[in-house]
Simulated scan of single mutants.
Amino acid sequence: MKKIVIAAAAATACATSAQAGGFERSATPLGFMFEKGNYAELSFGSARPKVSGALNAAPSVTTGNVTKNYSTVGLAFKSDLNDQISLGVTLDPTFGADVAYPTGTGYPIAGSTAKLRGDTLAVIGRYKINENVSVHGGLRSVGIGGDVSLVNGGSNFYRATFNNDRDVGYLIGVAYEKPEIALRVGLTYASETKHELDASGFSAFAPGGVISGSTTVRLPKSLTLDFQSGVAADTLVFGSIRWVDWSVTRLDAPFANPPAPLPPVNPLVSYAKDTITYNIGVGRKFSDAFSGAVSIGYEKTQGIPTGNLGPTDGLLSLQVGGTYTHQNMKITAGVRYVDIGNASALKSTPTSTTGNARFAGNNALAFGLRVGFSF
């Protein structure tokens, strides 16, 4: 029971997160560390978000779809050094954002674009204290970089490339297992990282129009509670609660602010509150080879104006997936539909509590595939 049903629980986690809090696209995976024996997996994700809005004062002036489709690839490998100690490594496309406001819409910042990319390379160890209790921890090398191009009234007044920068953080956690009922509860903390991004490009407000400087951004710490338990023959309930400290994250661009009467641009990215994301679902074994799962996800809408480079707020999602097991191979596929929370954007001042644009009725569709081998 344990092997098949735990595979079912993994099915819905396979689909990429698609518009989770901040610009996180996935959390560093840890499930592979609990596989038996030596194990390797390759995962693919693809998301198709649709996010659009309109000016409150002129609802006929719309943005068009401002988000781009994207794909992700992840790798993980784990080896048992002995009966108590396991060592693993994972490469995960943790962070990302792709925003492009179509031209010709009449929206004030039509033609503006922004892209962020971040990944996590983690080396993780796990030590089994006894049959039920284990601890895990390791080091995380986190990278982040990107570029932005800002347009106002059809005029491009700012372009910048932020060179990729890496910082080392850590993760630490504990897990309790009761194999006879497929019970596992795990708690994992991941530390914050700090990045100094060198910027280069053009600004209409910099001396000579040339950008020369850097900006500091902190990527948030997180705390994740994962759980699963058998509740009947071949049936498993699973879920997670994840807190991410997004309120520490702020990205300012050197020489980005235009003089009055135009509104200030900075910060390019900032978040007023942290996020808590909930997921709960049920998995079921249908045969010796196939198991399936369905789950729902929820992230509260904060109701605070966002920046134009991330005009989403909260989510409600439905995930469906299945796992096929054959000898030492396990194939997991999942699909996720996300109802993206409404957001206000285009703030007039950094401290304003209202926005003059409304993004509503948005969604995303994500697909995921994971192939794992035990050996």
Rank of each mutant, 00 (worst) to 15 (best):
Q228D: 02
H326E: 12
K347I: 10
G322D: 05
A15D: 04
A343V: 07
Q84E: 15
S317F: 01
P261K: 01
V265R: 07
V89E: 03
E299S: 02
A343W: 00
G334L: 05
N363R: 11
L251Y: 08
L219E: 04
A160R: 06
S295G: 05
P179S: 14
T224Q: 09
H195G: 07
P350E: 00
A122W: 05
L223N: 06
F373D: 03
V185R: 08
E180S: 10
G22R: 04
Y39L: 02
A7P: 02
S141Q: 13
G201Y: 00
I276P: 13
A256R: 04
Y158D: 02
D234V: 10
G173A: 03
R218Q: 11
V89C: 09
V320E: 15
L197W: 03
V151H: 01
D98V: 05
G118S: 11
T12C: 00
L121V: 12
F32L: 04
A10F: 11
F227G: 02
K178G: 13
A289R: 09
N65M: 04
A10P: 12
P102Y: 03
I172P: 11
G201A: 02
S270V: 09
P179G: 11
T72N: 10
S46R: 09
N342P: 15
N363K: 14
A190K: 07
D252A: 13
V338Y: 06
A20I: 09
A122L: 11
A13G: 11
R140M: 14
